[in-house]
Nucleic acid binder design. Structure first.
Lengths: 178, 178
DNA sequence: AATACCATGTAAAGAGTTACATGATTGG
DNA sequence: CCAATCATGTAACTCTTTACATGGTATT
């Protein structure tokens, strides 16, 4: 049920529609949680039924009615309750490392894939750095709640930097292996 | 279908039973792939039906028959084929970061959870370091295929070291936030 | 006597992915 | 005119988790 809690956290920060949440899960939250619009719409429906969210309809001309969700008192209580429950660390399931494990079968293919991933991580890192320099230029001046959000961005930076460094280290090890 | 490929990689390194694979997925491979025994037994059955694995039965007295799986020529071909196909980087879905995102609702709870995770990461790091010092003391003397496996262990080390450092950094940021 | 380990599975529920589907508006 | 963006959803499928189930052996 963690998608539900991620949605609670997002909607508690600011109410929004399924579509907007999909965007947010691609940008700021996408850093540590990924969800497709199908998942989000389904989950929002469930959560509204459960009483965690309330729905405000905003009809528009020529467009589907906007369904703006916001967190109810029960929803906030559920979020607070969940914050106190210990959770195991995220599980890692990484194709690239499976490939490296069997890398002796085709070192060139693995090397190519490492280079590709290196580029993807470098891109993400650049995106996060731009975000940090832009919206979070002076973190100590931010409202309190946003300082916590800034700390999640720092996690993204640290995560991408680590993979980038590991790709480089591994590529040179492969060079030496020949 | 990536569990299938992780199993191919594991069984290509050395044939084994579902139970043994479950152990291996807890130890060396658990570093980058996690799978429960239920998943593993089911997937092994499917893969055998598909012709990727062959099965050798070793009856035992007083115990269930051991079912030792090994990779067939088709299985190896499937693994080699998969090695060449580009794959997106692993997705991260981390409860802890969702909690931090909503951390303003209960900073103390988040701090406690960070400390708990810090300890878990420190434990894992120690386990990997012991493995590196033990089985992989002289990596350059290892057989070629195991040098690739060693590189996946280095990923685990890097990953845990990064989370540990991030936990520390974030904990001191929380101190300052008060 | 109890716990842990070996060794295998089934069933059901929950979460996530992929494909399909619609229709207006805006920018190049 | 085509592609992208806004905005919503359904259906089918796959993958993962949790719970249930059995039974012998070894250790404390």
């Amino acid at each position: 049920m963690a998608l539900a809690h991620a949605l609670l956290a997002a909607l508690h920060q600011e109410p929004g529609t399924g579509y907007e949440l999909t965007r947010r899960f691609e940008l700021s939250m996408g850093n540590f949680w990924q969800a497709s619009h199908q998942q989000i719409y389904r989950e929002l429906g469930r959560m509204a039924q459960q009483g965690w969210l309330e729905l405000q309809l905003q009809p528009q001309q020529g467009k589907p009615t906007r369904k703006v969700y916001s967190v109810t008192t029960e929803g906030l209580a559920a979020l607070r309750d969940w914050l106190q429950q210990p959770q195991p660390p995220a599980v890692l399931r990484d194709d690239l490392l499976v490939k490296l494990y069997a890398g002796a079968e085709n070192p060139a293919a693995v090397q190519a894939e490492l280079l590709r991933h290196r580029a993807l991580h470098a891109d993400k890192l650049a995106t996060y750095q731009a975000l940090a320099a832009g919206c979070f230029a002076c973190p100590q001046d931010l409202p309190r709640a946003e300082q916590f959000i800034y700390l999640t961005l720092r996690a993204g930076l640290s995560y991408e930097r680590q993979w980038l460094a590991w790709c480089d280290e591994t590529l040179s090890a492969l060079q030496e292996l020949g």
